[in-house]
Design a protein around this nucleic acid. Sequence first.
RNA 1: GGCCCUAUCGUCUAAUGGUUAGGACGGCUUUCUUUCAAGAAGCAAAUCGGAGUUCGAUUCUCCGUAGGGCCGCCA
Length: 451
Amino acid sequence: MPVKVRIAPSPTGNLHFGNARTALFNWLFAKKHGGQLILRIEDTDLERSDKKYEESIINSLRWLGIQWDGEIVRQSQRLTVYTQYLKELLASGKAFWCHHTVKELDAEKKGQMERKEAPRHLCDHKNSEKGKETGEIIRLVVDQTEEKKLSFDDAIRGTIEFNQRVISDVSLAKDLQTPLYNFAVVIDDIDMAITHVIRGEDHISNTPKQMLIYQALGKTPPIFAHLPLILGSDKSKLSKRHGALDIMDYAKDYLPEALVNFMGFLGHTYSKDILSKEEMAKEFELAKVHKSGAIFNIQKLNWINAQYVRQLAPSDFEKLIGHNVLKAAIPLMTERLEKLTDMDAFHYFWEAPSYEAELLIWKSSSREDVKKSLEASHALLEKLELNNKDELRKELDKLSAGQAGNRGLVYWPLRVALTGEKMSPDPVDIISALDKEEVLSRVRSAINKLS
RNA sequence: GGCCCUAUCGUCUAAUGGUUAGGACGGCUUUCUUUCAAGAAGCAAAUCGGAGUUCGAUUCUCCGUAGGGCCGCCA
């Protein structure tokens, strides 16, 4: 049977880092097996779902380059299908209308907790004649009277077993037209012939409930694979309080390829550190997915991003920063960039710097010495072709030999004159990247500051 | 509280029934040096604890311990 997997976000918020990683793993698995990846929007919760989130999720997936197959499926457009199954289940007595109120359910749970029992709803309406046609909510009939094991073979974790006694009469739908999560998921996975359900570990406890629904329907469940969670620095499930999480929040700082590369390593290992998702797919195996949660480590992301930034084509780099830059300046920047927003540090490549005159002074040298040094440099630069780096360096070195071998006295004031910064690429590189007139003008301006 | 999952350097992880327990990020040191960055060289840094199986266990089993997840008429 050909592999068919799905990514199933609910449009109640933007695409979160954890969901994106789940989406990526599904993509990798589908790619590896030449299978299909379906995008299914789980918008059964009318109150919380919003079209704007759906759009945002789709944009995020596109930005990441996670491609799905075929049309987008929306649960809200499949209501009649759920109704059909619901009617069947009700008619066959495998589901029933529960009449308990939320308040009663809370009280039941509280009592169970006090008695140190598993909190769950054991509904006494499942065999009663009360309100067969309507009620508060539709539930699945679950037999909790005898010890019965519910087990499945998780493709990542091996056999996981639950005792049926600890499971509620599973809530299926609020009414015939309003399915609930566990039910809608199972129906869709059956209808769409999903072969592997790859999702977060937080769904392990939903799995026995869903298995019960498969049983009631007489269907064989797909293969389940539960991914380890991504953790914040406090080792708890990554959530809003750990900082930026929406995928699009990363777009300003990171390249999508870098983010994908990083995400791929949270739960799986590959033969090299830097690789594309296509390369990952070749090596991907569910059996190799880790079992324990991984902490989101931003430093590693920064490093991976830096590797990608360096390999950027000049034209792509310009696109990223939104304006043209001097070609020769690009490698000087990409070699130093971790996050894209660090770009501002290189303002001197597109504007004349402003700085305090004091910054021009090299170590303990005098104001007069610095001024002389700059004047000598200016005279030298005027004569030279500035695009020959080797010659430039040779001449400037010769100049510093005249300053008692004090190269700092030559290069430091030049750096500041050109950039206005304490830290920058080599002045020689900057000079050859900039326009000659611009260089001379910046040096003159520095000399004036010292006058 | 109930059920379930997990456990190797700070972090991501590799490996094996016998290894000096390997790599990467980060950190530190040295080098280069006009400041960064990069590069080069190097250092520190881990098998949660206790039993059992075994000639031998970090690896297998059990029991603890710790961390995490779920326990909705959310998904």
